Simulated assay, not measured.
Amino acid sequence: MKMLKVLIAGAALFTATSGFAADRPVHLRGEVTAVTATDLTITDRKGVKTVVKLPEQAQVLDVSRSSVDAIKENSYLGVAAAPAPEGKVRALGVMVFPEPARGLNEGHFPWDMGDKSTMTNATVAKVSKKSSATELEMRFGGKTQVVVLDKATVYGQFVPGKRELIVVGAKVLVIGAPTADGATAANAVLVGRDGFLPPI
């Protein structure tokens, strides 16, 4: 039960948002270059530094590498994807949910990993092996979405983590929200293991 509560509290990363709404969560990806008891500094791949407030209640998720082999029928996934022909989407990053997190924020909605990118949180109903890729039929709320996995797809998995994982050099995805003073406060910090950048 404790694990489920932590996952729910940290699940802002998989939450549907209303496209370009002013209250849309802030997503920051990069490397931790400074950290204190109250904030951390993230440097993205372009060298831009952002200081983020780190409240006591901010959740930490421990993210490690996974692979296509972890995906089976009935797996529950979060898939960040780009548009593909015939109404399909091409998976950029896949997060394999632990069983206690099954069903969290189920749906298909806009994401921020490129033009017209999406997030699909759903159950794998069917796995089809193709010559150059694997296709997943994912079901959510009575709907389906076909997801194409290819050689460029990155896979991860997560469990609740500890604040001690947030150290200089760690690769992170921070999900935050704007504060009244114009800063960003972290709601959840996804910390990649061994230099792994969370794939969503």
Rank of each mutant, 00 (worst) to 15 (best):
M1Y: 00
M1Q: 08
K2D: 13
M3Y: 09
V6A: 14
G10Q: 01
G10K: 00
G10L: 00
A11R: 04
A12T: 02
L13F: 12
G19F: 10
D23R: 12
R24N: 06
R24M: 03
V26D: 04
H27L: 06
H27Q: 00
G30N: 11
E31H: 10
E31Y: 09
V32S: 11
A34F: 14
A37H: 14
T38E: 15
D39G: 13
L40H: 08
D44R: 05
D44A: 02
G47M: 08
V48K: 15
K49H: 12
K49L: 06
T50Y: 05
V52T: 10
P55H: 06
E56V: 14
Q57V: 05
Q57I: 02
Q57T: 11
A58V: 05
A58W: 07
A58R: 04
Q59I: 14
Q59V: 15
Q59T: 15
V60P: 07
D62V: 00
D62C: 03
D62R: 05
V63K: 06
R65I: 10
R65G: 13
S66F: 09
S67I: 04
S67L: 01
V68P: 00
N74I: 02
L77A: 03
G78Y: 00
G78N: 01
V79K: 03
A81Q: 08
A81P: 06
P85M: 01
P85F: 01
E86F: 12
E86I: 00
G87V: 04
G87M: 08
R90V: 02
M95L: 14
P98K: 02
E99V: 13
P100E: 01
P100Q: 03
A101Y: 06
R102I: 13
G103S: 13
G103Q: 11
G103F: 04
G107P: 11
P110S: 01
P110Y: 01
M113D: 05
M113H: 04
G114S: 08
S117L: 05
S117I: 03
T118C: 05
T120W: 07
T120D: 09
A122N: 15
T123N: 15
V124F: 10
A125W: 09
K126E: 15
V127W: 06
V127K: 14
S128L: 11
K130Q: 09
K130A: 03
K130C: 00
S131C: 00
L136R: 08
L136G: 07
E137P: 09
M138K: 06
G141W: 10
G142A: 10
K143R: 15
K143I: 04
Q145K: 14
V148P: 02
V148W: 02
L149T: 04
K151A: 13
K151T: 09
T153V: 02
V154R: 14
Y155I: 12
G156K: 05
F158K: 00
F158V: 08
P160M: 08
R163M: 09
E164R: 12
L165F: 07
I166A: 10
V167D: 12
V168L: 05
G169Y: 10
A170R: 13
V172N: 03
L173E: 03
V174L: 11
A180V: 09
D181T: 08
A183K: 13
A185G: 12
A188N: 05
V189P: 11
G192P: 02
R193H: 08
F196E: 06
I200P: 00
I200C: 06
I200Y: 06
I200Q: 03
